[in-house]
């Protein structure tokens, strides 16, 4: 009986270590690719304002563009968040998760509007998905969706 419990503990520890290693690697790689692509799209501003265009500007094309991403937590971070839930305080691991999802969503939106000059009225929405049948499982993954209106001006 004691042995079985020990094995269970080892399995949990194994998952935590595995989650820590892969999670950190994936997050680092993701942030690197996000930063690279953000530099690439520096010339295409996405703004939350609705009317920044001049009256004289001739609009060539109006496109509705969306982008979304579903990012999941790893086992280690979920364990960490569980601890924080007990002590309270700022949960950095969740912050980076949300940050990654939102930035990725904005980038995907921009990728759909490569020819555009500006994206107006950008809205970002977040929803928690993947709440599975197990009730004790907390938020496993979040979805971020960004949408806006891409405007192409006549040059």
């Amino acid at each position: 009986m004691f042995n079985l419990e020990l094995i269970q503990l080892y399995i949990v520890l194994f998952f935590i270590i595995l989650g820590f290693i892969t999670g950190t690697l994936i997050e680092k790689r993701h942030y690197r690719s996000i930063k690279e692509r953000e530099l690439k799209f520096l010339k295409l501003p996405a703004v939350t304002i609705k009317n920044v265009l001049d009256k004289e500007a001739i609009i060539n094309d109006v496109n509705f563009v969306t982008g979304s991403a579903v990012i999941s937590l790893d086992y280690f971070k979920r364990f960490l968040a569980g601890l924080y839930n007990f002590f309270g305080g700022e949960i950095k691991s969740y912050e980076s998760l949300l940050d990654r999802a939102r930035r990725e969503a904005i980038l995907r939106m921009k990728e759909k509007a490569v020819d555009a000059d500006i994206i107006l009225n950008v809205r970002i929405e977040t929803s928690a998905i993947g709440k599975s049948a197990e009730k004790r499982k907390t938020i496993g993954s979040i979805e971020a969706i960004a949408y806006g209106t891409a405007i192409t001006l006549k040059k």
């Binding site: 991403a69 999941s72 993947g130």
Partner: peptide, 23 residues
């Protein structure tokens, strides 16, 4: 598959695709 991905973390491409299609 998403359950497995939940251990290692990262993007759930299948879900992204599913939600994109539904939307």
């Amino acid at each position: 598959m998403a359950g497995l991905k939940n251990i290692v973390g990262g993007e759930l491409c299948a879900y992204t695709e599913l939600l994109r299609e539904s939307r």
